[in-house]
């Protein structure tokens, strides 16, 4: 099972980024292997539709679940259309979240948790 964790950095020690569409990094981890891949999010600067773009990026990696802080309505719709489970309210480091996920301590949600533009950077 493959998951994507939104992160402030590119390692297991990095903090979770609470934004989905405009997180700094996507960290991909797999229960079947010890492979880890971190991708810098190209959608941070997008003026609109960052959640949709990020949703497609993550879907393209064939993940089963996304672990993040919050997810907006457009990203939610995109992820669900791709059949990806969404787990929100995750905090701490990527490594801690990964352990919790593997121990089945995290549960997917049934709807988006924030409005559009939640992750827009402050001026």
């Amino acid at each position: 099972m493959k998951v994507c964790i939104t992160s402030r950095g590119d390692s297991l020690e990095s903090e979770i980024d609470p934004r989905f569409g405009r997180c700094e990094y996507f960290v991909f981890l797999d229960t079947e292997s010890s492979d880890m891949e971190a991708i810098k999010n190209p959608n941070i600067i997008s003026s609109g539709g960052a959640g949709i773009q990020s949703g497609q990026l993550v879907a393209g990696k064939q993940v089963n679940a996304v672990l993040t802080g919050n997810v907006g309505p457009n990203a939610w719709q995109t992820l669900r259309a791709a059949g990806i489970e969404v787990i929100i309210g995750v905090s701490g480091t990527v490594g801690q979240a990964w352990e919790k996920f593997k121990n089945k301590e995290l549960k997917p949600v049934k709807g988006p948790s924030v409005d559009s533009k939640f992750g827009m950077p402050a001026e």
Partner: peptide
């Protein structure tokens, strides 16, 4: 240019 479309390719018969 405005990210108004999302395309999710099918996989394995889906």
């Amino acid at each position: 240019a405005f990210n108004a479309l999302a395309v999710l390719p099918g996989a394995e018969g889906k």
